[in-house]
Amino acid sequence: MYFPMKKKLTKYLFVLPGFCFFAFAMLIPFVMGINIAFTDWDGVAASYQYVGLKNFMDIFRDARIRTPFFNTLEFALIGTVVGNVVSLYLAMLINSKFEKLNHISRTVFFIPVCFSSVLTAFLWKFLYREFISDLFGTKNLLGNPFWVIPAIVVIGVWNGAGINMLIYLSGLKNIPLELYEASKVDGANAFQQFTRVTLPLLMPAFSVCVTLTLTSWLKEFATTLSATGGGPGGASRTVSIYVYENLYKYYKAGYGQAVSFLFSLCLIVIGLCVSSFFRKREVEL
């Protein structure tokens, strides 16, 4: 406006330092990885050969990839729904009227976020084995092919709900109280206030939280690997774990890289769709 030329350059200067880090750590390795996906590299040897699209064709013939594929969808579905409902529930609890309890409970709900997934998985393995099974008179849920995925989702939600809770909480706090008062004057009950005022104004928080939980569950790796290693009998093996196993266990780095490439493509498309779905529904104050 006032310095047209200078301003034009400045806006690029602003993103430059961040972009350099990003390019070094993600963009360049990503492009190098694509190259590997077209080879028969085993991950160790110095030499490899280009095999064209063979790796990609193999994906569709690979029977072993089906279970991980459906497991990943199950993780994503259960994890996203449970994760967001729990986080929003926690945020609303904290945003309620018990001033003193709110401070304590926010800290309590957030503390698990301080724990690494390795540590959390270790803690819950202990709980499932020694405590929860005694409490409900069941066998270890992590050893049950049907319950293992919900059981891992519980671990992940306990571990991560605090983050989305904070995002929802700041969204809730940004809703002007006048809107609630105005809607009350108009005769809205608590439920109507929730659906007509709270939810629409929380859309920015939803677009962040849903996108992030969905994609993080789709690439679920560390918690599951530490908790069950993909077991029992592959019942909790995710696509990410399958990729990892191709690289480090089956010595098929080229094929693994092809799977993870196709998989990343799907993730990106899903993520962009979900994010734009919510962004379109954001309302400006």
Partner: peptide, 20 residues
């Protein structure tokens, strides 16, 4: 691009990063 990169699983970068 930033948004897209959030969805990339880290395993896709493991080997290239190691090589670099």
């Amino acid at each position: 691009v930033y948004l897209a990169s959030l969805m990339i699983p880290f395993q896709i970068l493991m080997i290239p990063v190691y090589r670099i």
